[in-house]
Design a binder for these strands. Structure first.
Lengths: 189, 189
DNA sequence: ATCGTGTGAGACGCAAAAGTATCAACACTG
DNA sequence: CAGTGTTGATACTTTTGCGTCTCACACGAT
């Protein structure tokens, strides 16, 4: 009898890999019977909604924990990446992939609000001269999101050590964004 | 009556967002009737196989065009990123997401071979002293793959200009990988 | 005008999956 | 022991999607 957390973790892991998996497969992955699965979640939609909710909450919690408004922008971004790397192995943000239009409006608003805090962090760093100004904040949000997915995927496939992901995330994101003294900024050619 | 290309583009766009979409939805997205869709592809499996084939071939063609074995590693990687950025808007590699075990073995082999060429390019750059050695080639492959997805997604959502994607890809990947003279390499802390 | 081709609309059978209901087994509690 | 509650197994109905088929219509070529 796995706890509700273990059930959701197993379901997230399976559905991230195979979004079309049936409720029977989900139940098998969680080591419970199909009947019990339907007792906990009255429908498939309710299950994926709960999964989306957890993913968005984990993302929001990571942004909260990073305190993106405090200190210098480089340090704040580094804290954020560390938080995001922490939650990626296991089930991570993979459930965020199909977060297009189907999810509940309040969840979308939560995710958007967290994205906005990251955007403001980038703008703050640009105004302070820490970040290059020819990299749009939107690209930072998008690349961070998908690089977290890249890390989780690499770990899942056994091609990346999970303890390395945080460092690699920081390297890739920060080195492409940080502005160095005396370095010319390339134009858009 | 959309051409076969237009049909496949529409199908790829939909299935990348919603891998569980039904054939009826695919037909609607391509603006043809369900009957016609089945006339062109005898089964759903045949459709997704064709989609996977196209995606893998586009990826392989991009690697070919970049000539990763020629010239210095930085330039070669820059060429590769430019090629990948070119194919991303439209439908890109999104169809590669569910390339886990379901696809045909020959396609998987093709994709793996192209990945290997990229890995060798990274190793070559590391041995030549152009790239830092504390970033595993596996991370480069994974991050490039998903950053291409990030670019395509940003363009699709209207948040990124497609002509900027190539430059941003280069900035993010190369600045995190290139080794600079006189710069200390951070340990894994 | 008529033939051939491709298309959309719709109905059909079939299988798989969703969701519901029942029952027996087991654990925990007093 | 009696009572309560959760689970698994199983059978069942309903829904959904796949794949096939037929038919009518539009179109171009002859």
């Amino acid at each position: 009898m796995p706890s509700s957390d273990a059930l959701l973790d197993a379901a997230a892991g399976l559905l991230a890999r195979r979004p079309a998996a049936s409720m029977a497969e989900v139940a098998a992955a969680a080591d419970i019977s199909r009947a019990t699965l339907f007792r906990r979640f009255p429908s498939r939609g309710a299950l994926v909604e709960e999964l989306s909710r957890r993913a968005v909450q984990a993302y929001t919690a990571a942004v909260d924990a990073a305190r993106p408004e405090e200190g210098d922008a480089v340090g704040a971004l580094r804290r954020l990446l560390a938080e995001l790397a922490r939650l990626s192995p296991g089930y991570g943000l993979l459930a965020l992939q199909p977060i297009d239009e189907l999810v509940e409006a309040d969840l979308l608003a939560l995710a958007t609000a967290a994205d906005d805090r990251v955007r403001r962090l980038v703008h703050r760093g640009q105004e302070a001269g820490e970040f290059r100004v020819d990299v749009p904040a939107e690209w930072v949000v998008a690349s961070v999101t998908w690089l977290v997915v890249a890390g989780a995927d690499g770990v899942r496939l056994g091609r990346l050590a999970s303890r390395d992901v945080g460092r690699l995330l920081s390297t890739t994101v920060l080195d492409g964004l940080r502005r160095r003294e005396g370095e010319a900024i390339a134009g858009s050619g």
